[in-house]
Design a protein around this nucleic acid. Sequence first.
DNA 1: GATTTTTGCGAGCAATCGCTCGCGTTTGAA
DNA 2: TTCAAACGCGAGCGATTGCTCGCAAAAATC
Lengths: 199, 199
Amino acid sequence: MERRRQARGERRMAEILDAAADAFAELGYEKASTNAIAARAGISPGSLYQFFPSKEAVARALADRFVTDMRAAHASAFGGADVAGMDLGELLDLVVDPLVAFNLANPGFKALFARPDMPSALAESSQPIQAAMLGQVESILDARVPGLAPADRARSARVLVRVFQAMTPLVAAAPEEERPAEIAELKRVLGGYLTSLSA
Amino acid sequence: MERRRQARGERRMAEILDAAADAFAELGYEKASTNAIAARAGISPGSLYQFFPSKEAVARALADRFVTDMRAAHASAFGGADVAGMDLGELLDLVVDPLVAFNLANPGFKALFARPDMPSALAESSQPIQAAMLGQVESILDARVPGLAPADRARSARVLVRVFQAMTPLVAAAPEEERPAEIAELKRVLGGYLTSLSA
DNA sequence: GATTTTTGCGAGCAATCGCTCGCGTTTGAA
DNA sequence: TTCAAACGCGAGCGATTGCTCGCAAAAATC
């Protein structure tokens, strides 16, 4: 049932997603009304529904865009590095810095993915990226802490991802000059946990 | 403007808070409508408003009750222990276990305090307990990591509290038989960070 | 027993939500 | 140039929200 889009329409869709990202970041998912999103995009409510059948579809499309961008940013920073033989500090810099930068550059990201009350379809959208991240963290764990049982490795990966997600808002909320210190603490938490696992 | 309450009324108020805790835990703050809370308490919407002037007042009263209970649970477990001379594992058990138990026993707690979109008046209610917890964590830090500058100590306390808050839902979501392992990971994260601070 | 206050009800109000509909304008293909 | 399809509008629908109001039963006070 794909609809034929004009170039103008594709542009509008991108603008709507930009507006939705703004609104979600500022108001949260529930309080960001479709009328408000449309107003931020400079269009009428009816026009929004010409491109997306529902608010949830807008969120899903935005989530997909975030996932794509995130994967690109992460892959480009990760490009075939020697995870096993690397200094722990170097590894943390390599992994954490681009992810933090992505989160800072896309304030709407966590509003979509970190909410406990999101519609189930959104959780489906976020599942691939979550699984991909967990997988990558598990492969790092495999290289750095070889003796780990699979169940323990999966649990530790969940812990690491969770801690990262929890600390990111702290970094984002800190004033500009405090950010390096907050990022250092984030790396200290992750590094401390990793060394504790190896012991 | 205090209103005279009968014993029956006081009981009703407690029942309403119980119902609100249930509803907030299950549906989240926004989706827990006042009519739903009243229905769970077995009363009519009008009756609810005889005891609380607004939904926010219900949440504030519930938050106050949580704060009181939490403080009691925490103080009783903390009763004048030798924080400085203690083994790190012992210290973590002493501090973490009662807090985890409280969070598991009160599922509505995090629904009220962990939401980024709560009304500002609720944030005021949660501020005393947050400040108290941060203060206690800072005093522990003072004893265990003496060389820390005040700003760093405050930052580290924020990190520790944040990590705890982030891990608790992981513990709560885990199946019963996995909980000890999840709690062990929580302690490992906190312990790893603390030892990394001392180094 | 008489009176006031508290407790209790549930229909329904005003506001807001996601979303639709009717109709006009612009665009691209023929 | 024609015409169907895509784009665009904004009033407003049906549902839901937090909350009110008029009125009745129960309890406390006299």
